[in-house]
Design a protein around this nucleic acid. Structure first.
Length: 489
RNA sequence: GGUCCCAUCGUCUAGUGGUUAGGACACCGGCCUUUCACGUCGGUAACAGGGGUUCAAGUCCCCUUGGGAUCACCA
């Protein structure tokens, strides 16, 4: 156990402690793709804990794999973080900027005899590994070069860390609990490639140590790397951080979440009309809970989140629940803000958002019937198109000669209204029903088809109000003309 | 195959020895209603299996089974 040198736990009501021991957390994605669901959740957990404990959140780009890292990926990750509202206090730092530092530490380990040069070729190693696997033995490095006494500067070589051959390496994972490994299971990992670049397990340790990271929250696929890293911290004489390994996210078939299960990029969800607060709320609840609560504002989360309450087991990504949360946030969102978010979706549909009713007013009528901004945009189309088609079945049922009489009368009454708010409009509808001896649906449905072209739409009084008097009357005229020409049945 | 991790409704989860095993999504039904939704009320549905420990086990221990991760000159 490494508890004896645990980072001091933050005491919130002890200002001295806080200033002396600010917890330092980091998110360290490798820029080989966009920010995906799993990474976003890891970033979120780090961010939340940093906020909660008034610590420091650092963004570090792990681009030691020069071949696979791209600037586009860096930009995509940054964009994803920004969309989710996960800001960082320090960084972004790039590992590729630290190559000299890594070099220095490799040399230090070499000088101290804690690392050695290995001249085995990749091919030889691969062959040995395959043979070991086939014979059912551990495919670990056999130590061929471990005790070489003379260096051969001429031959290409890698640098290996000299790991202890016995003993136990253990740590107390904040999520999983105590985890331990027999050192004999670990082999001498390569810390510097033959081309002189450092490898991941070495670089993370140097970076986390030099950045003073006190707690590492990352995916549980790193559990098996942890003992090697701890050994490196020890060899380097650095303090070992605390670890918290978050379980991974699965697809509906319980295999690792991938494109097969749908979108995995967080930005794809923005494009599908999801709100960032819904995404944050969903992601945090996938693996973490706080009693029976489901809805959490950002402030709630900062107050209530704790890493110890994160569950140990992998979770299935459930798009339905995300959708439900999104619907919730749309329903309760500020119409002005939603209107702004809706614009690109309307543009995509060839609609000019300025050439129609006030957007916030449109949004208000759609908030409780749209689960995504796409649904909202689709539902809003009729407000902006004067040439809308009448749904065939709807027209046949509701735009009849009989209803044309009601619609014509409705037009007269609406045109006479002084104020044009939903309440007044509703009263006019009801008065019309009374006077003509019909039920409200007998007027409301034809009116709905007349004004929207469909049978499914927001409340008819709101639609009339939102459309405004002029447009309403024009549309009513058009519908009456159609209704008169449809056959009686 | 070695090592490591995990295991409560279909899914996300509450539960820290004594509960009619709770909530949420989804699903089904009632109500509300100008359509569609929203809302609301109710329902179906779970402790993987086997051994222990204990007066008492979803909760503690062991085994089995099942799932997953990892074993690179990727990160």
């Amino acid at each position: 156990m490494n508890n004896y040198r645990m980072t001091p736990i933050l005491k919130l009501n002890d200002n001295f402690e806080v200033s002396m021991n600010k917890i330092r957390l980091r998110f360290a994605p490798s820029p080989t793709g966009y920010l995906h669901i799993g990474g976003a959740r890891t970033a979120l957990f780090n961010w939340l804990l940093a906020k909660k404990l008034k610590g420091v959140f650092i963004l570090r780009i792990e681009d030691t794999d020069v071949a696979r890292s791209t600037q586009e990926s860096v930009d995509a990750i940054l964009q994803g973080m920004e969309w989710l509202g996960l800001d960082w206090d320090e960084g972004p730092f790039y590992q590729s900027d630290n190559f000299p530092l890594y070099k220095e530490y490799v040399q230090k380990l070499l000088d101290e005899g804690k690392a050695y040069r290995c001249y085995c070729t990749a091919e030889e190693l691969e062959a040995k590994r395959e043979r070991a696997m086939k014979e059912g033995r551990k495919p670990k490095y056999d130590g061929t070069c471990r005790n070489l006494t003379v260096a051969d500067a001429g031959r290409p070589s890698v640098v290996r860390f000299r790991a202890p051959e016995e003993g136990v390496t253990a740590f107390n994972d904040l999520i999983k609990g105590p985890i331990s490994f027999n050192n004999e299971e670990l082999d001498d990992l390569i810390i510097e490639r033959s081309d002189g670049t450092p490898t991941y397990n070495f670089v993370v340790v140097i970076d986390d140590a030099s950045m003073g990271i006190s707690m590492v929250i990352r995916g549980d696929d790193h559990i098996n790397n942890t003992p090697r890293q701890i050994l490196l911290y020890e060899a380097l004489g650095k303090a070992v951080p605390q670890f918290a390994h978050v379980p991974m996210i699965l697809g509906s078939d319980k295999t690792r979440l991938s494109k097969r299960h749908g979108a995995t990029s967080v930005m794809a969800y923005r494009d599908m009309g999801f709100l960032p607060e819904a995404m944050v709320n969903y992601l945090v609840r996938l693996g973490w809970s706080f009693g029976d609560e489901e809805i959490f504002s950002r402030e709630d989360l900062i107050e209530k989140f704790s890493i110890e309450a994160v569950g140990k087991s992998a979770g299935v990504f459930n798009p339905d629940k995300l959708l439900w949360l999104n619907a919730h946030y749309i329903k309760n969102g500020d119409p002005e803000r939603l209107a702004g978010l809706l614009v690109p979706f309307l543009n995509e549909r060839g609609v000019d958002p300025d050439a129609g009713p006030s957007l916030p007013a449109v949004v208000k009528t759609l908030q409780e019937r749209a689960r995504t901004m796409i649904e909202m945009a689709d539902g809003a189309l009729f407000y902006f198109r004067e040439d809308y088609e009448f749904d065939e079945a709807a027209a046949e049922k509701f735009l009849t000669p009989e209803s044309s009489i009601l619609l014509a009368e409705l037009k007269i009454r609406l045109s006479a209204l002084e104020s044009f708010d939903a309440e007044t409009i509703g009263a006019a509808f009801k008065q019309l029903c009374t006077d003509m001896g019909v039920k409200l649906p007998q007027v409301a449905q034809p009116a709905r088809v007349a004004l929207t072209g469909k049978t499914a739409a927001p409340g008819i009084f709101e639609v009339v109000e939102t459309l405004g008097k002029k447009v309403t009357l024009t549309r009513l005229d058009r519908a009456v003309a159609v209704a008169k020409n449809l056959p009686v049945h």
